[in-house]
Design a protein around this nucleic acid. Structure first.
Length: 239
DNA sequence: AAGAAGGACAACCGCCCGAGG
DNA sequence: TCCTCGGGCGGTTGTCCTTCT
């Protein structure tokens, strides 16, 4: 036997919400809160709607702290980087964007970011030549505090040898030991990945010179993103 | 000017999980 | 320990609006 439905779907209103319904729901919640029970809320509020529908309407549209308008470049960067780390965990991703809902983030990803990235980096595209950057210090103030300025693009095959990865990590470890913590707001953001390639951004403030990075893979980027703010200087090697 | 196509986003569906009995 | 239920989530669909032809 299947599970009982949460409401009588045949007798509740569906589809777009009217202004009157919005007003009923808003005023009820502002006065009484949700009471921790969405299923009984519509009846108490005088709404002929499914409780889940009420919850969705409130969380995605009526909530007072919802941010309207287009996503900023910084928000897009955050979404991309977290998507790489977490996959389609929209609620978690949205929790890092003040005023954005999981539905907003999901829609934005599906309608804008995914297509944009596919257009910019079609699968099987030959990677551009590797570019050498020099990094004196890499810090992750927070992945949400990227400057967005002076952005440099890197592209690297995922098949990067594990030995190189180890060398990079070793170099970083050594510098951790030798030089202690450093600060900057460098951020790595990976934008697209497939079974055979990865690509991304490294961003840092325009006044940070002598940055150097040569190669990376998904694991390395994930590690970087997960690194606490006290990140020691990184010495990378040229290819 | 009108119809088609595409984009944006609101809303729904159904599954999963945890709490509580 | 099992069962039921509600909340939460991700995937998908529906609808409206805009742009293109």
């Amino acid at each position: 036997m299947g599970r009982a439905p949460c409401c009588d779907k045949a007798n509740v209103k569906r589809g777009p919400w009217s202004l009157e319904e919005d007003q009923l729901l808003r005023s009820y919640i502002e006065e009484h809160g949700t009471g921790g029970n969405w299923i009984s809320l519509p009846r108490k509020a005088g709404l002929n709607r499914c409780g889940k529908s009420c919850r969705l309407r409130w969380l995605n549209y009526l909530r007072p702290d919802i941010k309207r308008g287009g996503f900023t470049e910084e928000e897009a960067d955050v979404i991309c980087s977290l998507y790489i780390q977490l996959g389609s965990r929209w609620s978690i991703i949205a929790s890092h964007l003040r005023g954005r809902t999981d539905n907003d983030v999901k829609n934005y990803w599906n309608t804008k970011l995914k297509k944009k990235l596919m257009a910019t980096y079609p699968m099987n595209q030959t990677p551009p030549p590797a570019v050498d950057f020099e990094v004196n210090s890499i810090g992750t103030d927070s992945i949400f505090a990227m400057s967005g300025k002076d952005r440099h693009q890197l592209y690297s095959p995922l098949s990067t040898s594990s030995s190189l990865m180890m060398e990079q990590r070793d170099a970083r470890s050594k510098n951790n030991e030798q030089e202690g913590s450093a600060s900057s707001s460098t951020v790595a953001t990976v934008y697209e990945s497939s079974s055979s390639s990865a690509m991304g951004y490294l961003s840092w403030p325009a006044d940070e010179d002598d940055m150097f990075l040569t190669d990376f893979d998904m694991g390395w980027i994930s590690e970087l993103l997960a690194t606490p703010r006290e990140v020691a200087p990184l010495l990378a090697r040229s290819i």
